[in-house]
């Protein structure tokens, strides 16, 4: 079943095929968890976001509408939204304590890894392209995408004109698109 498309797996989940959900989990859990961890800086909360998201896929598979695009982007968008919502609810003091926990969890997790995770080369190329962005461009992207800040909030935080932030966001996305032009999307082989 590991070669089965996402669409087919979701269809099987709709007919209560637990094995299909497990394949989807093995395919995407690492990306979901990594994204949530980068937003929340809390391994426990990232794990919870991951569990809740896949539980939602199991309980309400009809929420994914294949007509609106492939499953992978939808799932990761949902993961980000959940993590950002959680982040906004938490207090600054708690965030600080979570950051301290990251180190401890990162160590203990080495003894409890999940080997069955998606690790495709296309995703690595995306990360490389992102890493090659100028730090000023990467900064606004990280504050928006991982920090959940609006462009106006970023401008206030960095003390720069809103127009500059908009320009940097646009430039960053343009450069990313150019760097990956002609490349396969990370989830193209799992649609």
């Amino acid at each position: 079943m590991s070669e089965t498309s996402d669409a087919e797996l979701v269809a099987r989940v709709r007919s209560r095929d637990q094995a299909a959900l497990e394949v989807l989990y093995d395919r995407y859990a690492r990306s979901v968890y990594s994204l949530a961890l980068s937003i929340l800086h809390d391994p426990g909360a990232a794990e919870e976001v991951t569990q809740e998201l896949f539980l939602q896929v199991w309980q309400y598979p009809h929420l994914y509408d294949a007509a609106r695009g492939p499953f992978g982007p939808w799932l990761l968008r949902s993961a980000r939204n959940r993590a950002i919502d959680l982040l906004r609810r938490r207090t600054r003091e708690r965030q600080l304590s979570w950051r301290l926990e990251v180190t401890a969890h990162a160590t203990s997790d080495q003894n409890d890894p999940d080997d069955a995770v998606l690790q495709n080369e296309a995703a690595a190329r995306v990360r490389q392209a992102l890493a090659e962005l100028d730090s000023s461009l990467r900064q606004v992207i990280e504050l928006a995408y991982l920090g959940g800040l609006t462009q106006r909030e970023i401008a206030q935080r960095l003390g720069m004109p809103l127009g500059t932030v908009k320009t940097r966001v646009r430039t960053a996305l343009q450069r990313l698109a150019a760097a990956l032009a002609g490349d396969r999307e990370p989830w193209a082989d799992t649609r």
Binding site: L35, S38, R127, L130, L146, P186
Partner: peptide, 11 residues
């Protein structure tokens, strides 16, 4: 594609 911005972590 920004979903792949974070470094991958083992679940």
């Amino acid at each position: 594609l920004l979903a792949f911005l974070p470094s991958p972590h083992l679940v």
